[in-house]
């Protein structure tokens, strides 16, 4: 356990090596929150309800999405495929620590760093926009935390899956770009998923995308009843198990082919 704690401390510190990049990344997140909050605040000046959301719900949705992007979608694994392709992971493979465990700790440190900054940014945004944020019931709050943790696990597994492309190809940006575009629209801060036409929303529910932030926000806002929450969490658990099995199988095949090129 001690080695994991030491690794967490190291990964946390590593994240502060390129402070300018970190600052720019956080500033960009702040800007996109400001844009969404401004647009919806302006829209609600002329009417009280738009697309089934009142102002309080919509503003809470944007604050929550910003927070969830740091908790669930922030990841240290964006360059994993490059590390695999270049042979950089060889150093981790020979260490007396599981590779997935090592990557998970890196990911947790990255999320903690992002959460630290999002709390500061949220305070600033709160002072600028002075929103009313309704709190969930205790049960919904607990289920929200559970859904957030499960969303983070699913995102970690999907990033491992993308990383595995590096076993066979250096060309990973095409699939990742598509993934980012889908995430931008299904877990983005600009609008909630359920304002889309029902057919599109139903199609998206056949993918893991709604579980990156949308379902979590709906639990927090109390827009799902207990039966719906159960089924959503069951689907999310199903995605985690399914994706994990596929990822494990692909990594096993990848490690069999792995030649530690360039090392």
């Amino acid at each position: 356990m001690t080695k994991y704690i030491q690794l967490l401390k190291l990964s946390w510190q590593n994240g502060f090596v390129y402070r300018t990049s970190l600052f720019m990344w956080r500033f960009r997140q702040f800007l996109s929150s400001v844009m969404s909050l401004t647009v919806w605040t302006v829209i609600y000046t002329s009417q009280s309800s738009v697309l089934g959301y009142d102002q309080t719900q919509m503003i809470t949705y944007i604050f929550l999405s910003a927070f969830l992007q740091s908790c669930i979608l922030a990841t240290a694994l964006n360059s994993l495929s490059g590390r695999v392709y270049s042979g950089e992971i060889s150093a981790q493979l020979v260490k007396p620590i599981s590779l997935f465990g090592y990557l998970a700790i890196e990911d947790v440190a990255d999320k903690l760093r992002n959460i630290f900054f999002i709390l500061i940014e949220t305070s600033l945004l709160y002072l600028i926009f002075i929103p009313t944020i309704p709190l969930p019931t205790l049960l919904n709050g607990a289920l929200f935390v559970l859904a957030v943790l499960m969303g983070a696990v699913m995102n970690f597994i999907i990033n491992l899956l993308f990383g595995a492309i590096g076993f066979w190809s250096p060309d990973t940006w095409g699939p990742k770009f598509m993934f980012f575009i889908m995430v931008e629209f299904t877990a983005g801060k600009l609008f909630p998923l359920d304002i889309l036409p029902p057919i599109l929303e139903k199609l998206l529910y056949l993918t893991p995308f709604p579980y990156f932030s949308f379902v979590q926000t709906q639990i927090f806002l109390g827009r799902l009843d207990s039966v719906q929450i159960f089924w959503q969490l069951a689907s999310l658990a199903g995605w985690i198990v399914g994706l994990y099995l596929v990822t494990r199988w692909i990594w096993q095949r990848g490690l069999r082919d792995y030649a530690a090129a360039g090392q």
């Binding site: 940006w173 095409g174 770009f177 598509m178 980012f180 889309l196």
Partner: peptide, 22 residues
């Protein structure tokens, strides 16, 4: 890099279409 470029191209269209839809 045909495959990668096709994905980039499709991604840009999805982004444009979704933004216009919203």
């Amino acid at each position: 890099n045909r495959g990668t470029n096709l994905l980039f191209f499709s991604g840009k269209f999805i982004r444009l279409a979704m933004t216009l839809l919203v």
